[in-house]
Design a protein around this nucleic acid. Structure first.
Lengths: 219, 219
DNA sequence: AGGTGGTTTAACCGTGTGGTTGAAATGGTT
DNA sequence: AACCATTTCAACCACACGGTTAAACCACCT
């Protein structure tokens, strides 16, 4: 098994044995190189080297650079979104929901600092991919998110806010500092010490800012 | 005049007459292509076509693709930062300061939707460029920003916050929705109508969120 | 007119690129 | 062993890429 088609999801759910470890190995290598160099900057030879195989293997398993790039993109998105699922459970209180969401984001960015930048950059050049991928990997995200929001608003925990506004707010505060951190850092002229202090505090700080911004007017 | 060196700032301040309009023309074309395709994705031939000149002209004026890319980057950063200056004037009250900053950001992104994405992407691969450029184009940004912040805190308008935290907060909320807007939009499953409404409201909404998040505890 | 120097061009070059090919291994099945 | 599909690989290809070159163009000056 393993000719360029079918393949239900990106990360094949537990292939029989060690089978297709070659394909997974290539995908891993491609993932690293594409994220590091960007899709255009990446070279097939470099991916092959990183995977420790002949360049022909890449074409054997993925047919073309474009398809390989697509596979990597889907996997990256999947990896990203899977981190949010736990926080989405209905029984989690809103405060914790926010805290978990932020924590998940920040943890992911510590693990894979290039991921979001890569996704956004890809998004820029292949807008159609995103809709497909998100529909496939995260079909009921909107409903879960909306439910949590409605509950919190009804309980008076936060003031009314659109799902779009809320999502944008949260995602901006957590995603941006990682991809644009260097930008802000230089802009504010922060030295290493100041920056490290900021990084260390950012989780509690973000949650605090978020809850402050959302708290009902009467408080 | 016009051999590959000197050239005090990026956008030469009013060259004598129509002189060096060729260089400016090339830079314009390069700007468009680089922002559209990304530095790696851009082709020298395409830039030449867009500028309506022979490919050799690019090398004649800018020597290499790398130098051309550098020139475009500096110009893009300069263009970005020049928008913030008016809001920085000391006499502007804090509320208006925030409003103006947000408004400037959003206006710029309407004019040049790819700009920030491009800058961040470049930043990713050439971290050193940014420090240089910012020191050159925006040397006293930190001081001005800090002064405004200190004044607002002293006046009790906002609760204490680090310059780094404040900058990150503001920049995240304004920059991110443009570069990651498509991401959030699909994530929240917003249709065109919902999205347009969000875009229309975002300026007042951002300012509101920002001031809410920063307002002193006693309120 | 003829020279001068900045500017513009077509033709060319070496190299690196994504992609192909055909054959050699590999391993399971009979 | 013989057979067959799958996997691996070295060698190769066409071409697009960034960059170079040498000649032509064109004001402008004397």
């Amino acid at each position: 098994m393993a000719l360029h088609d079918a393949k239900p999801t990106v990360t094949d759910l537990a292939p029989p044995d060690g089978i297709d470890e070659a394909e997974a190995n290539i995908l891993d290598a491609a993932h690293r190189v594409f994220l590091r160099q960007g899709t255009d900057g990446a070279r097939m030879q470099e991916i092959a080297d990183e995977a420790g195989v002949n360049k022909s293997m890449l074409h054997y398993y993925f047919r073309s650079k474009e398809r390989l790039a697509e596979a990597v993109f889907m996997r990256a998105v999947g990896e990203t979104f899977r981190r949010f699922e736990p926080a989405m459970q209905p029984e989690v209180p809103f405060r914790d929901f926010v805290r978990d969401l932020v924590a998940a984001d920040l943890a992911m960015m510590d693990d894979h600092p290039y991921l979001v930048g890569y996704i956004i950059s890809e998004l820029h050049h292949h807008p159609e991919r995103w809709r497909q991928t998100i529909a496939l990997e995260f079909p009921d995200g909107r409903a879960a998110m909306q439910a949590k929001l409605d509950a919190a608003i009804a309980a008076g925990e936060i003031r009314p806010i659109t799902l779009l506004e809320f999502t944008t707010f949260l995602v901006s505060l957590t995603f941006f500092p990682t991809i644009g951190g260097g930008l802000v850092r230089a802009y504010a002229g922060a030295d290493k010490e100041e920056w490290d202090a900021f990084l260390a505090r950012r989780e509690t700080h973000f949650v605090d800012l978020c809850l402050h911004a959302l708290r009902p007017a009467e408080a």
